[in-house]
């Protein structure tokens, strides 16, 4: 389902809480990629009001996805369960760091889960780039957030439109924790083919994003 309610810039907490309540009442089942607005409001409710209902809603949507992601990366069920809970707890503690003009909530969750995966499964550090110094405006730009939203939707469509084989390889590269050489070994395809298919897929995505 898709949400058509747009949050105004600088929504006051009460309004946000009310909005979250409406969203959660209207659907207890599933959200799609187009529901980023609802997720952004939930993250804001956690940040401003420590809203446990909003967190529970985010948890219902993202936790099973994070767990699937971790298990595809080679974690066993127990470890994946444990790490998923830690990833979700990180969403709570870092809610104030989320910037809706720079990433969708799904992307944010992906980066947290990826970093946890590197910590837990590969037991190594992940060097992070220096943070960008923030500009004069403290509030994220609403126009940026809107264009990001449109781009995320376009991206999801573009991925869905990829030829089956290219989509599989992109997924393997992201979720399987495999290098291109390992994908070559696993699929029996020559390394050159893998690299060119991934490049082609990324090229198509870039083209679709125009």
């Amino acid at each position: 389902m898709s949400m058509d309610i747009v949050i105004e810039d600088g929504a006051v907490p009460e309004r946000t809480a009310e909005y979250v309540a409406t969203v959660m009442a209207s659907s207890s089942e599933s959200y799609g990629p187009k529901d980023n607005d609802a997720f952004v409001a939930m993250v804001a409710a956690i940040r401003d009001n420590k809203d446990r209902r909003a967190f529970a809603a985010l948890f219902r949507h993202f936790a099973p996805r994070v767990k699937a992601f971790l298990m595809k990366s080679g974690a066993n069920e127990g470890l994946a369960e444990e790490c998923t809970q830690e990833v979700m707890a990180t969403l709570w503690t870092k809610a104030h760091m989320f910037d809706p003009s720079r990433a969708s909530v799904s992307t944010w969750v992906f980066t947290i889960a990826r970093n946890r995966k590197i910590d837990a499964l590969r037991r190594m550090k992940r060097p992070e780039p220096e943070d960008l110094p923030w500009g004069p405006e403290a509030e994220p730009d609403q126009a940026d957030a809107m264009s990001l939203k449109q781009e995320s939707e376009k991206l999801a469509e573009a991925i869905a439109d990829l030829p089956e084989k290219q989509r599989e390889l992109i997924q393997a590269a992201y979720f399987g924790d495999l290098s291109h050489a390992q994908i070559a070994e696993a699929t029996g395809l020559p390394l050159g083919t893998i690299k060119s298919r991934i490049r082609l897929a990324l090229e198509r995505l870039r083209h679709a994003m125009g």
Binding site: R65, A68, S152, L155
Partner: peptide, 12 residues
Amino acid sequence: EAVGGALVDECE
């Protein structure tokens, strides 16, 4: 990273 996020959206 946005591609990763979109994959999370549609993954099982």
